[in-house]
């Protein structure tokens, strides 16, 4: 079976992508505000990059936007499994293919085919999905450390889970930085994520 060749991204993927972009922005901005109330590292995020104005505002944003994030993720994962988008477009990914594509990419010799992910893209997307899952699971434990204390224990206890949540955020923010840099480098990839059609 082959999709129409000019169709780069299905509607559900585009919609959930942009809803996710909003949700991640809200979660990271408010999360940085919460972090600043009791930093894990001897650094704080600049107040202009935080959302909420004060701890209470940041928490309110974080615990409101989590529903947007989770609901959107369920739609994406449900669609991705049912349509086989995940299995077809993100798998398989082998170390050999990643190395080959990474070498080509660093020499600017990796062609961009709309609607087809190269091995480096696949790896990055799978990694950010993993960081997203870690963020959700660790976030649930931070929200409900007593009701979910079995899960808290499995993950190493409340103080460790704060770090896991921070690591997950760092992974997601790192992904977004690479993702945006690549879009800036290859701007023709942006319109298909809006219209779904490749030029």
């Amino acid at each position: 079976m082959s999709l129409p060749s000019r169709r780069a991204h299905p509607l559900v993927v585009r919609l959930t992508h942009w809803v996710n972009a909003v949700a991640i922005t809200l979660m990271v901005g408010s999360g940085w505000g919460i972090y600043n109330a009791s930093p894990l590292l001897p650094v704080r995020f600049p107040p202009w990059a935080t959302l909420g104005g004060w701890l209470g505002g940041s928490i309110a944003w974080h615990l409101a936007a989590m529903w947007l994030l989770a609901g959107n993720a369920l739609v994406y994962l449900g669609y991705g499994l049912a349509s086989r988008h995940l299995a077809r477009d993100l798998l398989p990914v082998t170390p050999r293919s990643v190395l080959a594509d990474l070498r080509a990419a660093l020499r600017f010799q990796l062609p961009h085919q709309p609607g087809h992910y190269n091995a480096v893209q696949k790896l990055l997307y799978l990694m950010v999905l993993g960081f997203g899952a870690l963020a959700v699971v660790s976030g649930l434990v931070l929200w409900k450390p007593v009701q979910l204390h079995g899960l808290a224990w499995l993950l190493g206890g409340y103080p460790v889970v704060r770090w896991l949540h921070f690591v997950a955020m760092s992974g997601i923010v790192g992904f977004v930085a690479i993702h945006l840099a690549l879009v800036a480098l290859v701007p023709k990839t942006l319109p298909p994520m809006i219209t779904g059609r490749a030029r």
């Binding site: 901005g29 909420g52 004060w54 505002g57």
Partner: peptide
């Protein structure tokens, strides 16, 4: 931290929410 928090709280109108929601003195 507490002192900073009080400062932040006093300076809410500069916060992002306040800007978005029309410069309330007090987010929420």
């Amino acid at each position: 931290r507490l002192q900073r928090r009080m400062l932040l709280h006093g300076g809410l109108s500069l916060g992002a929410v306040a800007l978005l929601s029309g410069c309330d003195d007090d987010a929420l």
